[in-house]
Structures are given as structure tokens and as C-alpha cells.
Computed example of a mutant assay.
Amino acid sequence: MGPLDHVDLELLSVLAEDHRATVVAIAERLGLSRNTVQARMMKLERSGVFLSFDRAMSPRALGFPIEAMVSVVVRQADLPRITAELALIPEVLQAHGLSGQVDLLVRVAARDTQHLFAIDARILGIEGVERTETSLVMGEVIGSRVRPLLEAARRES
């Protein structure tokens, strides 16, 4: 998909304010037809603008009140296989490949500290993982957000 145009940015702005807004409500607010909004939404979805719904669910509400960031150092040649094995661990919420001394930053959720210890052991048990360092998340000081980027893009368009 090419760059987002003014209509796409306005549509996304409405969704950022109310993620449950219906296509009809968005169309009314933007002064567009329902079909136009529906077509734009489908185009945005196909192009990967929208992330998965499960990103909006709280691990704490599901019985996993402890979150941690696990820094993982791996043998580079094994990185694709290690990443695939990490994806099989249900408590792994996210993993990011990094440049620098740490290869992966893995966000995990646990029921308690014993469970976290077991998760870390499972990660360490993956062939090719050389070491880990686990840091408890003490609190979220800035939540996941894109609204400031959306506002900047709207100003620039």
C-alpha cells in the first residue's frame, strides 16, 4: 500500500477515538458513503494497518499478573528456528529482533514468580539460546500508542 491519504487518516482518527465505531457511524461523521468507508477499511486491513484484536486484551485479566522482558542472546545461525520455538510458548506475548548485544527482546506473562522462572528455563532450554536476562515489568508508564503518529501524519498531509 502506498502512503495513506487524507481520507484514510481521518478514518483512522475516528477509529482511534472510538475503536468500536460502526462503518455507518464513521461514514456519517466523515460525510462519506457507507460503501466508501467499507472499501477503505478493507483496503487498510489488507495492507496491514490494523493489528490483531488480541493486542487489546489484558494478560492480567486472564490470570497472568506478572509481565517481564527477557533479553535473549542466541547463535545467529539458529535465529529463525529459535523464533519459531519461542512462538510455541503460550506465555510469550511478543518478541522483537534487536541490533546490538542482545538479539531478541521477549515480553512474557506469568501467573507468579515460579511460573516466570519456569518460562525463563524453557527459553534457556531452546537449542541455540546462549543466555537470557529477565527484568520484571514494574508498571507501564507509556502504553502502546500510535495516536501521536496519526496526528503528526494528519498535520503533514
Rank of each mutant, 00 (worst) to 15 (best):
R46Y: 15
S33H: 08
V92H: 06
S71D: 04
L88R: 15
A77C: 04
P59M: 04
G97N: 07
R60N: 02
A84P: 04
L98H: 05
S52N: 10
P80A: 06
V23D: 00
G48H: 05
A56K: 07
H19F: 06
D18K: 14
R55L: 12
E28S: 10
A16V: 14
Q94E: 12
D54H: 07
P59Q: 01
M42P: 01
A56D: 04
I66M: 11
I89R: 06
A27M: 09
V49S: 03
D78Q: 05
V37M: 00
I82E: 00
H96W: 12
Q38N: 14
V37T: 04
R29M: 06
L93N: 06
L93S: 09
L88D: 13
R40Y: 13
E91R: 05
R20Y: 14
P59R: 02
L44G: 07
A77P: 04
L79Y: 04
L88P: 02
T83K: 15
R34G: 03
H19K: 09
D78P: 03
H19D: 13
P65I: 00
H19L: 04
Q76D: 13
M41K: 10
T36S: 15
A16S: 13
E17A: 15
A56I: 00
V70F: 12
R46A: 14
A27Y: 05
L86V: 10
R55T: 01
Q76T: 11
Q38F: 13
Q76S: 14
I89S: 03
T22G: 15
R46P: 08
L62P: 11
M42W: 04
T36W: 03
V24C: 00
D54M: 01
V92C: 05
A87F: 14
V73H: 07
R40Q: 14
R29G: 02
G97I: 13
A84E: 11
V49T: 08
Q38C: 07
S33N: 05
E67R: 14
A87T: 08
K43G: 07
I66A: 06
R60I: 00
S71I: 03
R60V: 09
P90F: 13
L30E: 01
I26S: 08
A16D: 12
S33P: 06
A56Y: 11
G63I: 02
R55M: 08
K43I: 09
P65R: 06
F64T: 08
S52L: 03
S47R: 05
A68N: 01
A95K: 07
G31R: 05
A16E: 08
V37C: 02
T22K: 03
S33W: 07
A68I: 02
G63F: 00
A84Q: 14
F64R: 05
A68Y: 02
L93V: 11
L98Y: 02
L44I: 13
E45W: 00
L44N: 07
P65L: 00
H96T: 13
L44E: 05
Q76C: 12
V92S: 03
A21S: 12
S58M: 12
R29E: 11
H19Y: 07
A39V: 10
A68M: 03
G63K: 01
L88F: 14
A77I: 03
L79R: 08
A39F: 03
S58G: 00
R40G: 12
S47W: 05
R20E: 11
R20A: 09
L79V: 12
T83L: 15
S52G: 05
A61G: 00
L30S: 03
F53T: 01
V70M: 02
E28C: 03
G48N: 08
A95G: 04
P65D: 00
V73M: 12
I82T: 05
